[in-house]
């Protein structure tokens, strides 16, 4: 079972100094997975301008620090998200947009959409709202930046520590080998 508190994983000493630079220049992987992607252009452009904080879109996971999951994730897109996440380089963070990443949102009872993103990849920050508006996104970024500064945003370390647990969850969804409902349940 995952340890709830990750106190001992927090950054310390010199890492904290570097965190200032990491906080000030986060490159996000513009991986528009769900309906939240539409919220990002306004945050980037004139009105909210997230570039002020050094956050900008980047094309490849290799160069990105920030993975935005902007909405519901079906099983197939989860597979790609996991591969992209693993291709990103440490330190890396994940922000889950909207309720779909928290508890499945309006697709809570869908047979293909995952309910809790944090079961599969470590989520450093989730922004509520069925698609949060740019203000919410900006505050989200602020809180993430503070967490990084304090050294608490250590999802990537958690992922490394409890990799088997994450792997088990991922396999349960992606690599199933026998049907979910046993024949008895089907009868009713």
């Amino acid at each position: 079972m995952i340890q709830t508190s990750t106190k001992d994983l927090h950054d310390s000493g010199f890492e904290k100094v570097l965190n200032f630079f990491r906080k000030r220049s986060m490159w996000m992987l513009h991986y528009c997975t769900g309906c939240g992607a539409m919220e990002l252009p306004p945050t980037m452009t004139t009105r909210w301008d997230m570039e002020r904080f050094g956050i900008g879109p980047m094309a490849t996971p290799r160069q990105a620090d920030l993975l935005l999951i902007t909405g519901y994730l079906s099983i197939k897109s989860l597979k790609r998200v996991i591969r992209t996440y693993e291709q990103m380089q440490d330190p890396k963070w994940v922000i889950g947009f909207g309720s779909c990443t928290i508890n499945g949102g309006i697709y809570y009872d869908s047979y293909t959409v995952i309910n809790r993103l944090s079961d599969y990849i470590p989520v450093d920050l989730t922004i509520e709202g069925c698609m949060p508006r740019p203000e919410a996104i900006m505050t989200g970024f602020q809180t993430l930046m503070d967490a990084i500064q304090k050294g608490e945003a250590v999802g990537y370390k958690k992922y490394k520590e409890n990799y088997e647990w994450y792997k088990k969850n991922q396999d349960s969804v992606l690599g199933r080998t026998e049907p979910v409902f046993t024949s008895s349940e089907v009868k009713k």
């Binding site: 499945g104 047979y111 959409v113 995952i114 309910n115 809790r116 979910v180 409902f181």
Partner: peptide, 17 residues
């Protein structure tokens, strides 16, 4: 119709209700 999506989702993706 006889496919119960709610139970399926809870079994596969974990309970949320």
């Amino acid at each position: 119709k006889d496919f119960k999506t709610q139970q399926y989702s809870d079994k596969v993706f974990g309970k949320t209700k």
